[in-house]
């Protein structure tokens, strides 16, 4: 029950952060492309439960959940969306280039699949330097169509590197369904196993399943057994990029949308906690606390200074 409550708190926090961004996005002060994680929180939280602050995580364009679940600063995230000096990259990178080195969240990048080799390179460094830590790379199922995925998985398997591949399969690459991108018989897990990753798939909306499977895989990785992959089947609730719902466009079948919305990971976990005896007041109190933290982060971001364009030529090269 305690670990479930912790998962719930972490997932609800991500959900409320994303909802707050969505609610304020139309004010046009967060002026960068933003990919919300609503509906996909369980994967990030379930995976992070097996990681320590020393472990290093990389992610893709849809990174808010991974960043927050790894312990990335909320204040620095919101300030980054507002393009402020106090943002995690001082306004250089925006929503798609997050970092918090103190939390072991190295970076997210915007190009599909291109942070996967970076995480594998991080694992190479960890192996050669004999560090007691592992690497994690988050990506979507679209990235498994990129060469970078195969090249990275191959090398990780070849050298038995300490890296966990986390594939969130939300079935769509922007508006393109799996059916136009991968053969119907494709199993990402079978593919990964054939390359040499220890791969399993789970219900990505069930945080307990994600956490249990990750714990097992990470144990093997820390033990020197080589790289692993977890495929989390999940669904994004809103548009690919931006704050809105877009199912009026009709690109996803109505029954599919209804199926997945009924299996919302946060609601599922809330129900489970209530069934296990948690009180509604307890959960509301949690929500209230999260709400104040988020309100504070937005307030700080809005009053923070913009970065100075006089510094635009800094950091082109290392000094």
């Amino acid at each position: 029950m305690n670990s479930l409550l912790e998962h719930y708190q972490n997932m609800l926090r991500i959900r409320r952060v994303e909802e707050a961004i969505a609610a304020r996005y139309s004010e046009q002060q967060m002026r960068c492309p933003t990919h919300l994680s609503i509906g996909q929180e369980a994967a990030a939280v379930g995976v992070s439960a097996s990681l320590t602050v020393k472990d290093k995580a990389y992610s893709s364009h849809r990174a808010h959940a991974h960043y927050l679940a790894k312990g990335g600063s909320l204040d620095a995230l919101i300030a980054e969306l507002y393009g402020k000096q106090t943002g995690c990259t001082g306004g250089r990178g925006g929503s798609m280039h997050l970092t918090d080195l103190s939390a072991g969240f190295v970076a997210s990048t915007a190009i599909v699949g291109n942070s996967i080799p970076l995480a594998v390179g991080n694992a190479l460094h960890q192996q050669v330097q004999k560090l007691d830590e592992i690497s994690v790379t988050y990506f979507g199922e679209g990235a498994t169509e990129e060469g970078a995925f195969y090249e990275s998985a191959n090398f990780a398997a070849l050298r038995k590197l300490p890296v966990l591949f986390v594939c969130e399969n939300n079935r769509y690459s922007v508006y393109s369904p799996l059916s136009v991108r991968q053969p119907e018989s494709r199993s990402i897990v079978a593919l990964a196993n054939a390359i040499g990753l220890n791969a399993i798939e789970v219900d990505g909306n069930d945080v307990e399943q994600v956490a249990a499977a990750t714990a097992e895989l990470v144990k093997g990785i820390r033990n020197g057994d080589g790289p692993a992959l977890i495929e989390c089947h999940t669904y994004r609730h809103r548009e690919h990029c931006g704050p809105n719902f877009d199912d009026d466009l009709g690109y996803r079948p109505e029954d599919e949308v209804a199926h997945w919305l009924a299996r919302d990971p946060v609601t599922l976990l809330q129900q489970k906690l209530l069934d296990l005896g948690a009180s509604a007041q307890q959960l509301e109190a949690l929500d209230g606390k999260i709400g104040s933290e988020i309100a504070n982060a937005f307030e700080l971001a809005q009053v923070a200074d913009f970065p100075n364009p006089d510094d635009n030529e800094r950091f082109v090269y290392a000094e």
Binding site: K56, P117, L118, V120, G121, L124
Partner: peptide, 16 residues
């Protein structure tokens, strides 16, 4: 695997 290995080089360089 020129692209992947370049990324692996970058990731290792970023790590130290």
């Amino acid at each position: 695997a020129e692209n992947g290995m370049t990324g692996i080089g970058i990731g290792a360089a970023l790590a130290g």
